[in-house]
Design a protein around this nucleic acid. Structure first.
Length: 404
DNA sequence: CGTGACACCAAAATACAACG
DNA sequence: CGTTGTATTTTGGTGTCACG
């Protein structure tokens, strides 16, 4: 990375007690430990050593922490100041085994029954319907119904013996697709081909008997079925009154789509219009919004306070923006915090579950070499100008890496 | 009867051409 | 040459049907 990691303006609590530092350490899905250190470590390295000791870990690992800026999604821990002052949750990422993922499905409910102490994190991650997790690198196939699981197990064993693929009966296919659609929907209501592909691959790698020997990747049929399924699944949700997908419904039965001039979500807008979380209504959230406006009037508004309230009020805000389409001026009055740099990034993450800054610079880093070769190959007057620019970049390279 | 599959249509995304 | 308008492709929604 050339350009990332701009100044992290972390405000940390000066009055923090110099006593114990509580850690919740996620080692893997079924192993989450609570550890107390004497004081917050000064560096990430020191923290790693402490964790290694306390948890008896042998192999090297990296750490991730739950970033309040991004709905407590996991981010790499590079700067110790990113951790809260008195207690934190970190995840151990082993550098040895990356592919072996246990087959259990974990959800928010698993997290809540892990420890009995007060959990700062779960307060508004459990009740909200807003998606928080990014699309996983390795999609975890959920557990199907006992019946389906049983038959799959049998078929997998059979497959191991004599390589016979399973001819999936109708009801079984339904069971599989339904659970998969549900699992996919948790991340993305409108998954693209690539995401469908990754799910299908995960499915046939976990259940070799489901592989389709005829197709080039062994899962073309599953990909097809999954795309159909996601469509049908959305219609189902629409009928059940889910606002997020209902917004794309054409008023009346007629194909009169431009019902209210509403735009359908863009492909990456994963949380375009989340439903209000259980136990929240517009009035309650409106109160929170007023708190936000007040906070912004202070000379030094608290970043963490704003981050958490902005998270909480996200569904209300989206509803407002999508349905009423207020002018920017009104928006500035009602949501002043939305216009701070930090919240611009945070809001982007809430909508697209993507880290705008990192992804952008990551992409820049990834594509720059290719661009440079294209530039170099360009002829004519434009080519000369580009060559000049490339020259400048080349000669300045060490600078760029050093700065920011 | 419910559901996977598919046809059909409008909107969104993208490729392309015409223009000043 | 960049901009802008247009044509083409892709995506997602609705309706329908066959099948177990």
């Amino acid at each position: 990375m050339i350009l990332c990691g701009m100044g992290t303006n972390v405000i940390f609590n000066l009055s923090r007690t110099m006593g114990s530092y509580k850690l919740r350490i996620i080692i893997n899905e079924g192993d989450i430990r609570k550890v107390s250190l004497d004081g917050k470590p000064e560096t990430v390295e020191e923290l790693k050593i402490k964790i290694k000791e306390k948890c008896n870990l042998q192999d090297d690992f990296n750490l991730m922490y739950e970033d309040p800026d991004f709905g407590y999604c996991l981010c790499n821990l590079d700067d110790i100041e990113d951790l809260p002052a008195t207690k934190a949750t970190v995840k151990v990422i082993s550098m040895v085994t990356l592919t072996l993922v246990p087959a259990s499905t974990t959800s928010i409910s698993d997290v809540s029954n892990v420890s009995d102490d007060t959990e700062i994190l779960s307060t508004y991650s459990s009740s909200s319907s807003t998606r928080q997790e990014q699309w996983p690198e390795f999609f975890e196939i959920p557990n199907f119904s006992v019946d389906v699981e049983f038959r799959l197990r049998q078929a997998n064993l059979q497959f191991l013996r004599d390589q016979t693929y399973l001819n999936v009966p109708r009801d079984m296919k339904h069971g599989i697709l339904e659970k998969l659609a549900e699992a996919i929907y948790k991340f993305d209501g409108y998954p693209n081909a690539e995401r469908i592909h990754s799910v299908a691959l995960a499915l046939i790698s976990k259940n070799p008997c489901l592989r389709e020997p005829g197709s080039p990747d062994g899962c073309s049929g599953w990909k097809n079925s999954l795309t159909y399924k996601m469509g049908n699944y959305r219609t189902k949700l629409r009928k059940a009154g889910c606002a997020e997908v209902a917004i794309n419904r054409g008023e009346k039965g007629t194909p009169e789509m431009a019902s209210k001039g509403l735009k359908r979500p863009k492909r990456f807008e994963v949380n375009y219009l989340p439903d209000l979380p259980d136990g929240q209504n517009e009035d309650r959230l409106e109160v929170e919004r007023k708190l936000l406006v007040e906070e912004m009037k202070k000379r030094n508004p608290s970043g963490t306070f704003i981050a958490s309230k902005m998270d909480q009020t996200f569904p209300l805000r989206r509803r407002e923006i999508v349905e009423a389409e207020p002018p920017v001026k009104t928006l500035k009055e009602r949501w002043p915090a939305l216009f701070t740099e930090r919240q611009v990034f945070a809001e982007f993450n809430r909508i697209a579950t993507t880290n705008l800054e990192n992804d952008f610079f990551g992409a820049v880093d990834r594509y720059t070499p290719h661009f440079v070769t294209i530039f170099k190959s360009k002829k004519g007057s434009v080519g000369e100008k580009l060559a000049e620019i490339v020259q400048q970049i080349d000669s300045r390279k060490p600078d760029v890496t050093a700065k920011t």
